[in-house]
Structures are given as structure tokens and as C-alpha cells.
Amino acid sequence: MKRLARVRAGRDQRTPVTALFWRICLLNGVVFTLGTLILALSPATVSARLRLTEVPVLVIGLAVMLTANALALRTSLAPLDELVTAMRRVDPPRRAVRFDRRASGDFHRLIETFNAMLDRLEAERSAAGATALAAQEGERQRIARELHDEIGQSLTVALLRLKRVVDRAPEELRDEVTDAQETVRGCLDEVRGIASRLRPDVLDDLGLHSAVTALCHEFTRSAGISVHREVDPSISRLDPAVELVCYRIAQESLTNVLRHSGADQVSLRLAGHADSVVLRVHDNGCGGVVTEGAGIRGMRERAMLVDATLTITTSEDAGTTVELVVPVHREAHVGEPV
């Protein structure tokens, strides 16, 4: 059975090449047969010794046959050119457009194999990306927990001890101890902020609506850039993977605004539809993104994990817009693992 399967697989692999060979042979045979019939039935004749007056007839006949042959081959091989164009458009971070098998003529098996190859590559890439991102999120969660539980508690103990030292310190040292106390308090706030950005508890506890709202408030507080927020309150709890992707892309978009755009206004809109959730982040910055860095590539990889479409439009006079459209197939139960 295995040998029979290998033989069939070999035949399937040779089928496109064999079909192409016989098609070219058939086209050439038809063209030259028609040319021969036309010359045979036409009044033109060729002497045993070629005359100068007969040369134009032969040249014209040859030119007609070659032209007809070229046109027939060009029409027959056109799907190959389209297939090459489709191959050149394949970009790993983006979902490739499938080739239309119905318009492929005799190359339908080749086109079908190409589309199947794209399916396998994207499935492997999605699985690998999901594994890597799951490991990344797990590591973020572990670090956030350690920051909150270990370092956060140690800094809290230090603050309590400094408070007792302030109460007992002599007057000439009280200001210095108070400054140290404020420094430790600032470190504690920073540690809590880092832990929250690494893995927001509000996303797991209250869902995407509350997490995005808290993200916008934190961004405005830390960056000093106003965010006009529109979050659809009717959005219910989604699949945890979808919520995490939406949150991370919103987070990365706001981070890019702060780092690169020079904007002073940002609008964030999260809307729910019957079969999709749309996240749109727009800024009034300089725009003109030419090359995509690691942040944008990461957003595209995350979007592919949930079969979403990520579109980034940018111009120097209209800022940058990031739009994520996530198909929603079902609602997940609260607490379902990612």
C-alpha cells in the first residue's frame, strides 16, 4: 500500500509537467498541420529550384505559423505567469491570496498544489507563532507576578520602615529620609506599572472593555497625550486569545504613537459587529511609515493567530491608522485558558 501511494504521488507530481509537454506538442502539431494544409490548398507553389518570387510566400507563411504558435502558447501558459506573480506577493507576516483554480486551465493541479502548500505553510507558521507567543505571555505573567509579589512587597516593607525612621529621625536628617521615602514610593509605583503592562489583571478579570479603558487612562497619564476613546459597551466577553490579541495590538499601537509619531491627539475605537470586532487606532502625527519594524511585524503575527486582518495606512499629512478586524465565531466562557 505504501509503495502504491508513493507511485501515485510520483504520478501526481509529474502530471503538471507531462500535461504541459503534451499541450505544447499538440499546439505545435495543430499549428504546423494547419500551415501545411493552407500551403497545400493555396495556389502558391514552390519550384524544385527556389525562385526569388517564392521567397516572400514562404517567409509570410512561416511568420504566420510562428505568430499563431506564439499566441497559442502565450494563452496556454498565461496561468504560469499569474502563478509567478502570486508567488512574489507571498509575504510571511501577511496572509497570502489564493490563486483562482477555476481560471488556471490545464494547470489546475499545479494551482491546487500551490494553494495547498500555502495552507500548510500558514498552518505551520500559525502553530509556531502561537507556541512562541504563548511562551512569551507565560513568561510575562511569571515576571509580572514576581515583580508584584516579591519586589513590590519588599519595596512596601522598605516604605513602612522609612516611615518609622522619618518619625524618629532628627530634624536635620528628616528631609533626606523623606526624599528617600519618596524615591522608594516612586520605584514601587513604577514596578506596579511595569507588572500591569506585562500582564494586566483587569483583562483576565473584567474583559477587553475595561482593559482598553484602563490602557487609555494609563497612556494619557504617563505620556501626556489625550486619547479620544470610543469603546462599544455591548461587547461581551470574547475568546481569551481574541481579547489578548486586541489588547496587545492596541498597546503596541499606542507605544508606537509615543515613540515615533510626535502626535498630540489619538483616537481609539473598539466596536462590535454581528460577526467581528473592529479595533481602530488613529493619530495626528507625522506618519509616513516606510519600513515595518519588529513591533509591526509582531502585530501582524498576532493578528494571524486569530485569523484577523490588520491594515496600517499612513501618510505625512494624515497621520497613521491601525485597524484590526477580528472575526468572532463564538463567545468563550470566562476563565477559559488561552
Score class of each variant (00 low, 15 high):
50 L>T: 09
50 L>S: 08
51 R>L: 02
52 L>R: 07
52 L>A: 10
53 T>Q: 11
54 E>H: 07
54 E>G: 04
55 V>C: 06
55 V>N: 08
56 P>A: 06
57 V>W: 12
57 V>Q: 10
58 L>Q: 14
60 I>H: 02
60 I>C: 05
60 I>G: 06
60 I>T: 11
61 G>F: 01
61 G>P: 02
61 G>T: 04
62 L>A: 14
63 A>D: 07
63 A>V: 13
65 M>C: 14
65 M>E: 13
65 M>V: 11
65 M>Q: 14
66 L>N: 07
66 L>Y: 09
67 T>A: 12
68 A>H: 06
68 A>T: 14
68 A>E: 10
69 N>F: 01
69 N>L: 04
70 A>R: 15
70 A>M: 13
70 A>W: 14
72 A>M: 15
72 A>C: 15
73 L>D: 13
73 L>S: 14
74 R>I: 01
74 R>G: 15
74 R>S: 14
74 R>H: 14
75 T>A: 13
76 S>I: 00
77 L>N: 04
78 A>I: 02
79 P>G: 01
79 P>M: 02
79 P>I: 01
80 L>N: 03
80 L>K: 06
81 D>Y: 03
82 E>H: 11
83 L>W: 07
84 V>Q: 07
84 V>W: 08
84 V>R: 10
85 T>Y: 03
85 T>S: 10
86 A>H: 07
86 A>K: 06
86 A>T: 05
86 A>W: 03
88 R>T: 11
89 R>D: 13
90 V>C: 11
92 P>F: 03
92 P>K: 14
93 P>D: 03
94 R>I: 06
94 R>S: 13
95 R>F: 00
95 R>P: 00
96 A>W: 03
98 R>M: 07
98 R>W: 00
99 F>D: 00
100 D>N: 15
101 R>G: 01
102 R>Y: 02
102 R>E: 14
103 A>P: 03
103 A>N: 10
103 A>C: 02
103 A>L: 09
104 S>L: 02
106 D>R: 04
106 D>M: 03
106 D>P: 04
108 H>N: 08
108 H>A: 13
108 H>M: 04
109 R>S: 07
109 R>T: 12
109 R>K: 11
111 I>C: 08
111 I>Y: 00
113 T>G: 10
113 T>F: 00
113 T>S: 13
114 F>Y: 09
114 F>D: 00
115 N>K: 10
116 A>D: 14
116 A>K: 10
116 A>T: 09
118 L>T: 05
118 L>Y: 05
118 L>I: 08
120 R>T: 02
120 R>F: 00
121 L>N: 09
121 L>K: 08
122 E>G: 04
122 E>F: 05
122 E>K: 12
122 E>I: 03
122 E>P: 06
